[in-house]
Simulated assay, not measured.
Amino acid sequence: MLPFNMIALIVLVVFVLFLIISHAVAVIPQNQVGMVSTLGKYSKKIEPGLHIILPYITRVDRVDLAQVPLKLNEQSVISKDNAEVIISLSLNYHVTDPYKFTFENADSVQSMIQQSRAHLRGIIGTMDLNEVLNGTERINAELSKELDSITDSYGVNVDRINIDTIQPTPEIQESMNKQINATREREAAIAKAEGEARSIELTNKANNDALIATAEANAQAVKVAADAETYRITKENEILSQTSDQYLAAQSIDAFRKLAGSETNTVVVPTSVTDSLGSIKTLSAVVESKKAKN
C-alpha cells in the first residue's frame, strides 16, 4: 500500500493536470467565434469547434454572431412644442466585426443603446406632439438611418429598430382629452347650425317655389282668359262682317220698337241711324206705335 504522502502527491498531480488540460482546451459553439489574446495581446480568431490553447497565458473571448433582440427601458423625451412623452424602444442587432466589438470598445452594446437614446431625443425634438404620435414609421426610419452611420465603429449592425409605444404623460393626456372634447362639441355645434341653416334654406326654397308656381298659374289663367276674350271678339267681328245691311236694319227696327214700347216720352233717333234705316215708313211705324200706346 502506497504511503499517504505518495497518494497526496498523485492527487495533486492529477488535479494540476486537470487544471492545465481544462485551460488548454477551448470549445467554440456554433454561431460564435473565439478572439484569442496571448499575454493580453490579440493573436488570432478561432472558428467554432475544439481548439488547443496555451493555458494561463492565453484568453479566449467568445463573441456571439447570432441576431440578438434587445428591449430598451422606457425613455422620457420632449417634443418641439415642449410636450413630454414616454417612449419604449426595441431593436435587433448582430455583431459584424468581432475585433471591434471585443477590443475597440469597452461595451459596444451599451454604447449602441446610448447612441439610440441620444438620436431618439434629437429626432423627437424636431417634431411637434401630433407629428410624434402619428409619425412612428418616420421616427423608425430616421433612427435606423442615424444608427447605421455610427454602430459600424462598434462592430455591430442594427437590423431592426422599432418604437413599441408612445405615451404622453398624464398631464399631456388630460389636456389632449379636453381638447378632443372641445373639438367634438364645436363640430357638433357647427353640424347643428349647418343643419338648421340647410333646413331654413330648403323651407325658403319650397316657399319660393310655391309662390312662383302660384304666380305662374295665375298668369296662365289670365292669359287663357285674355285669349278667350280675344277669340270671342274676333269671332263676333267675323260674324258681324258677314251680316247683311238688311239684317242690321231689322235689328235696329226691333230695338226702336222696344224703345217705343217703354215709358220714355221722347225718342231721339240719330241721323246716321235714320239714314241706315232706308225708309220713312219704318220711323212712322215706330212713332205710330208710340202714339197708340199713349
Rank of each mutant, 00 (worst) to 15 (best):
K145E: 02
K145G: 08
E146Q: 15
E146W: 11
E146V: 00
L147G: 01
L147I: 13
D148Q: 12
D148C: 11
S149C: 04
S149D: 02
S149F: 02
I150L: 12
I150F: 12
I150A: 13
T151R: 10
D152M: 05
D152H: 05
D152L: 06
S153V: 14
S153N: 13
Y154T: 00
Y154F: 12
Y154E: 13
G155K: 13
G155H: 05
V156W: 02
V156N: 08
N157G: 03
V158R: 03
D159Y: 12
R160N: 11
R160C: 06
I161R: 13
I161F: 12
I161W: 06
I161G: 10
N162R: 05
I163C: 07
D164I: 13
T165D: 15
T165E: 06
I166Y: 04
I166L: 01
I166Q: 05
Q167E: 09
Q167K: 11
P168K: 15
T169V: 12
P170M: 14
E171M: 01
I172H: 15
I172W: 14
I172V: 15
Q173D: 03
Q173S: 07
E174S: 07
S175R: 14
M176Y: 01
M176D: 12
N177A: 06
K178M: 08
K178A: 10
K178L: 14
Q179C: 01
Q179N: 03
Q179S: 02
Q179F: 02
Q179I: 03
I180R: 10
I180Q: 12
N181P: 10
A182H: 04
T183K: 07
T183I: 13
T183V: 11
R184Q: 09
R184P: 07
E185T: 00
E185G: 06
E187Y: 08
E187P: 07
E187W: 04
A188L: 09
A188P: 03
A188C: 04
A189Y: 09
A189K: 14
I190L: 02
I190N: 08
I190Q: 05
I190Y: 06
I190M: 10
I190K: 13
A191I: 14
A191T: 09
A191Q: 02
A191P: 02
K192T: 01
E194L: 05
G195M: 12
G195C: 00
E196H: 12
E196Y: 09
E196R: 14
A197V: 14
A197N: 15
R198F: 07
R198K: 07
R198H: 14
R198S: 09
S199E: 13
I200V: 04
I200W: 01
I200A: 09
E201N: 03
E201C: 02
E201P: 10
L202S: 06
L202G: 07
T203E: 07
N204C: 03
N204I: 04
K205I: 09
K205A: 09
K205Q: 08
